[in-house]
């Protein structure tokens, strides 16, 4: 079978914006995205002022400035999007689980570093624990805590960029996968040589298509690498 014929048998590629529309395409998915964003943003409203109180409690809202509130909302939306893409991808293609998990976690941790490492006893305690003492303890403590105190914006921005990248990467992977739509994609060739689509065709993988393979174990003739999420 020619390459052109193979291309014609798989579902057309979907671009990232369309993938996003499908990720948030139903009222329930949109509600899930908004709920996830709200929960994460709520979490951030308590965590970002942590360095003012050194406590994790509702009283942290006393120190929630407009600046921190905006960051909490933006990071919440970004994290909500990443979670939505990840959950959608997990539902659609198991292989897409790596799309955003670890890096999303890194972004989350990075966004909290300034709050947790400035003005808290964490750094001096760790330094003392590892044996740093005297002038070295004072110098290192001041340097490290001052670094986190004055670079909060950079840390938050880096976290947002990382989350945005993870969301875009996940959407891109979804967009490159075939069978993104509920209708599924072509999985078999009729006797007339025409592709048919059906619900069972969703998220085809070589193994799945091997169901139609011959006894030699090779992929069926209609299979194409374009049909595999990568």
């Amino acid at each position: 079978m020619s390459a052109a014929r193979s291309q014609a048998l798989v579902a057309p590629r979907v671009r990232a914006p369309k993938a996003l529309a499908q990720v948030l395409g139903t009222p329930w998915r949109m509600a899930g995205f908004l709920m996830a964003s709200t929960v994460v943003a709520f979490f951030y409203t308590l965590l970002l002022p942590f360095d003012y109180t050194q406590r994790f409690e509702l009283a942290n809202w006393d120190y929630l400035s407009a600046y921190l509130l905006i960051w909490a909302i933006v990071l919440g939306l970004a994290m909500g999007l990443v979670l939505s893409v990840q959950v959608y991808a997990m539902r659609k293609v198991v292989a897409a689980r790596a799309a955003s998990g670890a890096a999303g976690g890194v972004a989350f941790v990075a966004s909290l570093l300034p709050s947790f490492l400035c003005c808290t006893p964490i750094i001096p305690s760790v330094l003392a624990f590892v044996g740093v003492s005297g002038v070295g303890l004072y110098t290192t403590t001041g340097t490290l805590q001052h670094f986190f105190a004055v670079h909060q914006t950079e840390f938050l921005a880096a976290s947002l960029v990382l989350l945005a990248l993870m969301g875009w990467w996940g959407l891109r992977k979804l967009a490159r996968a075939t069978c993104l739509s509920e209708e599924g994609c072509a999985t078999e060739v009729t006797s007339m040589g025409e592709a048919t689509a059906g619900p069972m065709g969703c998220c085809s993988t070589p193994e799945r298509n091997d169901q139609g393979a011959g006894s030699n174990g090779r992929p069926p003739e209609h299979w194409t690498p374009e049909g595999v999420m990568r």
């Binding site: 003012y52 109180t53 808290t120």
Partner: peptide, 10 residues
């Protein structure tokens, strides 16, 4: 306290 510390301001 230190003057560049958020919890010291608070």
């Amino acid at each position: 306290m230190t003057t560049w510390c958020s919890s010291c301001e608070a």
